[in-house]
Nucleic acid binder design. Structure first.
Length: 152
DNA sequence: GCCAACGTTGGC
DNA sequence: GCCAACGTTGGC
């Protein structure tokens, strides 16, 4: 059981979108960074906790909590020539990119990036480090606990 | 829109 | 294998 922070641009997929599809699940596609892919491929497990983070928007921050609900599987968009995520070097036999499904657990108040920076228990979070751009990052149990408490 | 930081590509 | 050039991310 591990914890993760996953970034999404709310213009693409917001926490509201994730909650609206609660009956089903939301496929997480379009990751095109090897480090993030490897986290999904090698470490993510069904039941892992996810902090849903809104990036590249007026108020960046954590907007809700979700859960991993599938094993990794090939990201279909890598084979779709019409997709902006198309990758000519990926083949069905040797896919490069991976998706997983998440399910929204709870929309929370927005824990803004600015507020996160003021909380000592969070200062080591990868997402707060200078120059950090990884869209999927591990979260420690202590960080998770502190954030869940703040969001109550 | 700016720009720092990072990742990827490709020539050598 | 090095590294310059380029593209992307993402806060501000």
């Amino acid at each position: 059981m591990q914890y993760w922070l996953m970034k999404s641009e709310p213009d693409e997929v917001s926490m509201d979108d994730v909650m609206a599809s609660q009956a089903q699940t939301t496929p997480w596609f379009g990751v095109r960074n090897y480090q993030a892919r490897n986290f999904m491929r090698d470490q993510m497990q069904v039941g892992d906790g996810v902090l849903f983070y809104h990036s590249s928007c007026p108020e960046p921050g954590i907007a809700g909590v979700a859960e991993i609900v599938s094993a990794p599987y090939p990201d279909a968009t890598q084979f779709d020539e019409d997709s902006k995520y198309y990758d000519a070097k990926a083949t069905q036999e040797q896919p490069r990119w991976i998706s997983i499904d998440v399910k929204g657990t709870q929309k929370t108040r927005l824990l803004s990036l600015a507020e996160m920076r003021t909380i000592p228990a969070l200062e080591d979070m990868i997402v707060l480090q200078k120059g950090s751009r990884l869209s999927i990052t591990p979260v420690t149990p202590a960080q998770w606990k502190a954030i869940v408490k703040l969001l109550k």
